[in-house]
Amino acid sequence: MLRLKNINTYYGKVHALKNISLHLGQGEIVTLIGANGAGKTTILNTISGVTPASAGEILFNKEPVSALQPDRIVKLGISQVPEGRQVFKPLSVEDNLELGAYLRYRSREWKATIHKDMKQVFELFPRLEERRKQLAGTMSGGEQQMLAIGRALMANPKLLLLDEPSMGLAPLVVQEIFRVLERLRQESGTTILLVEQNAKAALKLADRGYVLETGKVILEGAADELMENAEVKRAYLGKDKKEMWER
């Protein structure tokens, strides 16, 4: 469904992605793990057209998409839940969700479909329904993360990119969010590319994973294999980290 071939991305002179190749099959959940600064966010932003690659190719359903503007990428069915949530804080929950469906607002049946989709989001995250009139900026971190995911879902994506959805959240909220991701895959067959620092939770959910280090893929494989891999265990599933997450 999505294939990156030898992608190279620069920030000025900083060579952030070095010959990244990866792929996602229809309906898969794939996770990218790696330390701070490894280039995880950059991969998602390169796919989304925010930081275009200077070399390499991105194919989505066999079509090249590497030269497109971010809004065109969304139109093709790739939505991103950005790092740090980035909800529109001065706008209400409802307005945020409505903007998630921005690309459809010209279509005739917009009013009807948007209500249906919003209902679906509320079903996944009942908390958002209770707060639909509230300004996004006044909600808790977990609620904002739910809103960010809901906003991305409003575009009816075929492929969902998530950048550290568990960042800074209590374990219970993280569980809730991961359960929703699982449900999305089962109920709507959404393909998911999940960037996580919380490697254990991510590998538990995912089918496959890639391990990134300083802009390169250093390991890839099935999630359960990676979980058993000595290198991964040492660097990303260490005992200290485990205690931190499980608290």
């Binding site: 529109f88 690309l103 575009a155």
Partner: peptide
């Protein structure tokens, strides 16, 4: 919706692009 999109752009242009707003 167009006005809300404009406010979204004013608040965070990158996130606006990511929901499909043609900045």
């Amino acid at each position: 919706i167009s006005g809300k999109a404009m406010r979204a752009c004013a608040y965070n242009r990158r996130a606006a692009g990511l929901v499909g707003i043609d900045v």
